[in-house]
Amino acid sequence: MLEVRNIVAGYGTIPVLRDVSLKANAGEILLIGGENGAGKSTLLGTIAGFNKPDQGEILLDGKPIGGMAPEVVARSGLRLVLDGHRVFPELSVYDNLRLGAAAGGRQVFKRALEEIYDVFPVLKEKHRLYARDLSGGQQQMLALGQAFIAQPKVLLCDEPSMGLAQALLPPILSFLRRWAETGTAVIIVEQHLAVTSSYADQAMIIERGTVKFSCPASELEARLGAAASVG
């Protein structure tokens, strides 16, 4: 579904990622972990078109998307949910969701909206409120809902837990799990690996801009323990 081959990228002349490759398959969740500053957000930003890779290829369904503008990437079916539950604060909850349907018709929108309201009833309840009046957790639900409306082939999710109480994470993760099972390729970047890994299929750890290792998510804890005792 999404394939990234040996990308090198950074800001201006500052390389942050060196030779990173990954594959995200339809129906699976890939969890990307690593400490702050390891380059996880830069990786997602580069895939989504926010910065241009200096080298390497990014393929969506076999078509290269590296170097395209973010809005073009989004329209070709890859949706990035930025970190820090960013929504449009001065728009209503409903309008935020509506803007998710940048591509796609009215029918698709209606169906997807119903689904989102089913999963997160609080969004339906507060659909007239300004997004700025939601709590952090609700804003994260809204941001995900907005992405869901777009029905992307690939979903990138940057630190869904950031700024949220731990208790809010499981419902969000199980939503992503069910979403992935409908045939979407999902990539989650997270620091809280312990909670997240049980929802994921594959895992990958990035350290200092390069891939430290990849493994099935079920083996992540063991691998991390091994890495810690060695290094």
């Binding site: 500052i14 390389p15 942050v16 702050n36 500053g37 380059g39 200092r208 801009g209």
Partner: peptide
């Protein structure tokens, strides 16, 4: 302020 972010291993 976060001097090591973005540095390679040897640079660190």
């Amino acid at each position: 302020d976060e001097p090591a972010a973005g540095l390679s291993k040897s640079e660190r």
